[in-house]
């Protein structure tokens, strides 16, 4: 186990090194001059080159890359062009907000995904199974931002039940603790629901098909032959074996989750990394764009690494690659 874990960690580190190179150079090699955008046309050309000089944009690209790497090890990720603060101090405000959105979304998506999948297998090939399959296939085809808009239209504008933007009401600071919590949950409800709906299709299909595959295996037949009922077999024998696939899909699903959080934050004006990234992208705030892309990719690498390690612990066959 330790040998396998070390191997996976080393390859994860190499991947991170690759990510540093790819994110930096992809963003920096694209044409477009941030100084020209920040530059106020009423000032002289001289001022623009001063700006380039201050940001280090006049130095060779490799020197800039070196400076960026050293900024990572200093723990500040450089300074934002847009508001002259260190990137880390900006990220410190936004990353928790993004996690407050993605972690509950991940949890509920797994919960409902497993529940739907199990329900389908319990009633396999019945109309419930078919109807759920069709609905999840439809969900799979729906763009997440459009779900968000439909939810806003229905629950905020038509019914007026839930807020449609920001994390908290302006007046919430004066409220007692529990009402403040309620306010936060109300604000998070629609964006989290949107993310859950957007990924429910893929999760529940994966779990349903995984379970269906297990139901065909010999040990299930043996259990059937011993006289266990269908429900007992699903709950006691099959479900246990979906653990590894569930962990794997969770790991694999993190990129999609993060991608969808970017756009959902925009729809719901949620002050997280995604909105920060889009705003920085429009402003060509290179240090922030690169840091966000890198950090989000880092989450992905970490997520897959943890998922791999947990599945290897649960199922030792994975370590030897014999599965």
């Amino acid at each position: 186990m330790i040998e396998y874990a070390l191997k996976r960690i080393v390859s994860g580190l190499l991947l991170v090194a690759g990510l540093m190179i790819v994110t930096f150079f992809l963003v920096r090699l694209s044409p477009g001059n941030p100084a020209a955008i920040a530059f106020d046309p009423t000032r002289s050309v001289d001022a623009m080159s001063r700006l380039e000089n201050a940001w280090g944009l006049d130095k060779p690209l490799l020197v800039q890359f070196g400076a960026w790497i050293s900024s990572i090890f200093h723990g500040d990720f450089g300074v934002s062009y847009a508001n002259h603060r260190t990137v880390v101090s900006i990220l410190k405000e936004t990353v928790p907000n993004t996690l407050a959105l993605t972690l509950p979304a991940l949890f509920f998506q797994l919960l409902f995904g497993i529940a739907l999948g199990v329900m389908q297998i319990l009633n396999v090939n019945s109309w419930i199974d078919r109807l759920t399959s069709i609905s999840t296939l439809v969900l799979y085809a729906v763009p997440s931002f459009w779900i968000g808009i439909l939810l806003i239209m229905l629950f905020s504008q038509k019914l007026g039940w839930l807020p449609s933007s920001q994390m908290i009401s302006f007046t919430a600071n004066d409220l007692p603790f529990w009402s403040q919590m309620g306010d936060r949950i109300a604000h998070a409800f629609l964006p989290v629901s949107t993310m859950v709906l957007a990924s429910l299709g893929i999760t529940s299909r994966y779990i349903r098909n995984g379970l269906a595959g297990i139901m065909d295996q010999t040990f299930i037949m043996a259990a059937r032959a011993q006289g266990f009922g269908h429900k007992e077999i699903v709950m006691r024998h099959a479900l246990k074996n979906t653990l590894v696939p569930v962990i794997t899909i969770t790991g694999q699903h993190i990129p999609a989750l993060i991608s969808s959080s970017v756009i959902i934050e925009l729809v719901f004006s949620w002050p997280g990394m995604g909105r920060l990234m889009i705003n920085s992208a429009f402003a060509r705030d290179y240090p922030v764009i690169i840091a966000c892309t890198f950090l989000m990719s880092l989450f992905v690498v970490l997520g897959t690494l943890i998922a791999d390690l947990i599945s290897a612990m649960v199922d030792p066959r994975i370590q030897t690659g014999r599965i």
Partner: peptide, 21 residues
């Protein structure tokens, strides 16, 4: 391939599209 696949596809498309302008 592994490196490219580790970066959420939409993020990359987004940042490159934005920077490219």
């Amino acid at each position: 391939i592994n490196v490219f696949m580790a970066i959420p596809q939409f993020l990359l498309i987004l940042s490159v599209a934005a920077v490219l302008g």
